[in-house]
Each structure stands twice: as structure tokens, then as C-alpha cells.
Simulated assay, not measured.
Amino acid sequence: MEFCPKCGKVLIPHNRILKCSLCGYTKKLNDEDSKDYILSHDVSDKRKVIISGDKVNAMPTTRGLCYRCGNRQLEWWMVQMHRSDEAETRFYRCTKCGNTWRRSN
């Protein structure tokens, strides 16, 4: 599995090209490398498998309230935005509508 060097999203294989669906970055694969990449829902294959689908979620989730759609499940992550002696900033993203906001401690 490879990630986009510009935005960090997973690169999806298609016709000997790895392409980012978010920013449009592409990387050409040679014939030998293209045999290693497949797009699949099954992880039992020994090749470099890329799990497809919008339902794959690798972020931790918590219960909260999305102020836009009212959904109660949120993804969350923390980023150190300021000096190390200051609290980190928490980001939340609604799992239903994708609305994202932050909360500083």
C-alpha cells in the first residue's frame, strides 16, 4: 500500500498507475510492480492488497454530536498545533456527513 506524498490519501491502482482520488497525484508503475498491486475487498492474498470501499475506517471513533447533521458517531485525532508545553488540538469528523471541526483544550 502506498500513500500520496501530497495529501496522504491511499493511492488506488488502475491500469499500471497509482492515483490519488483526492488531489489527483499519479505514479506510473512498471510492468513488474503492477503485478504486485491489486484492488480487492479480500486481505487473504499475499500481494500488496489495497482495500477498496468507502466503509474502511482506520480512525478512532467516539460518541458526540455533529452540529450539521445530528449524527452521534465522530472520528477524532489530535495534533500539536502550538509549542510542546501547550495542549494539543482535537479534531472531530462526522462519520455520516464528513463535517470536520476542532476543539482546543
Score class of each variant (00 low, 15 high):
residue 49 V to M: 00
residue 39 L to D: 09
residue 95 T to K: 14
residue 54 D to G: 14
residue 73 Q to L: 08
residue 19 K to C: 03
residue 88 E to L: 05
residue 47 R to D: 03
residue 22 L to Q: 10
residue 26 T to A: 00
residue 31 D to T: 14
residue 16 R to M: 08
residue 32 E to T: 15
residue 103 R to F: 12
residue 33 D to M: 13
residue 61 T to Y: 05
residue 84 S to I: 14
residue 84 S to K: 11
residue 3 F to I: 00
residue 30 N to S: 07
residue 49 V to F: 02
residue 37 Y to Q: 05
residue 97 C to H: 04
residue 1 M to N: 14
residue 33 D to I: 11
residue 56 V to F: 09
residue 27 K to H: 13
residue 14 H to E: 15
residue 56 V to W: 05
residue 70 G to I: 02
residue 34 S to R: 09
residue 61 T to I: 03
residue 61 T to R: 04
residue 84 S to T: 15
residue 11 L to I: 05
residue 44 S to P: 02
residue 13 P to R: 03
residue 77 W to A: 08
residue 75 E to C: 06
residue 30 N to C: 12
residue 22 L to M: 10
residue 96 K to N: 15
residue 82 H to Q: 10
residue 56 V to K: 13
residue 91 F to T: 04
residue 17 I to L: 12
residue 48 K to R: 15
residue 103 R to V: 14
residue 1 M to H: 12
residue 14 H to M: 14
residue 12 I to C: 06
residue 1 M to Q: 13
residue 79 V to L: 10
residue 49 V to N: 04
residue 79 V to G: 02
residue 6 K to S: 02
residue 55 K to V: 11
residue 12 I to A: 07
residue 63 R to A: 09
residue 63 R to F: 00
residue 77 W to Q: 03
residue 19 K to G: 02
residue 97 C to F: 03
residue 60 P to N: 04
residue 39 L to C: 09
residue 37 Y to A: 12
residue 39 L to Q: 09
residue 75 E to T: 05
residue 95 T to C: 14
residue 52 S to T: 10
residue 88 E to S: 07
residue 88 E to K: 07
residue 37 Y to F: 14
residue 7 C to E: 01
residue 84 S to C: 11
residue 14 H to C: 09
residue 39 L to T: 03
residue 63 R to D: 12
residue 12 I to P: 03
residue 49 V to W: 03
residue 67 Y to D: 07
residue 1 M to P: 11
residue 42 D to W: 04
residue 8 G to T: 01
residue 26 T to L: 01
residue 15 N to K: 15
residue 39 L to G: 11
residue 46 K to C: 08
residue 71 N to G: 04
residue 45 D to Y: 06
residue 24 G to V: 00
residue 78 M to N: 15
residue 80 Q to C: 04
residue 97 C to S: 02
residue 42 D to Q: 07
residue 51 I to K: 10
residue 49 V to C: 01
residue 46 K to Y: 10
residue 37 Y to C: 11
residue 105 N to A: 15
residue 38 I to K: 00
residue 83 R to I: 13
residue 66 C to Y: 02
residue 65 L to C: 06
residue 8 G to M: 02
residue 27 K to M: 11
residue 33 D to K: 15
residue 94 C to W: 07
residue 11 L to C: 02
residue 7 C to F: 05
residue 31 D to A: 14
residue 73 Q to F: 00
residue 9 K to I: 08
residue 90 R to W: 13
residue 93 R to G: 03
residue 74 L to C: 00
residue 8 G to N: 02
residue 79 V to N: 01
residue 57 N to F: 12
residue 42 D to H: 06
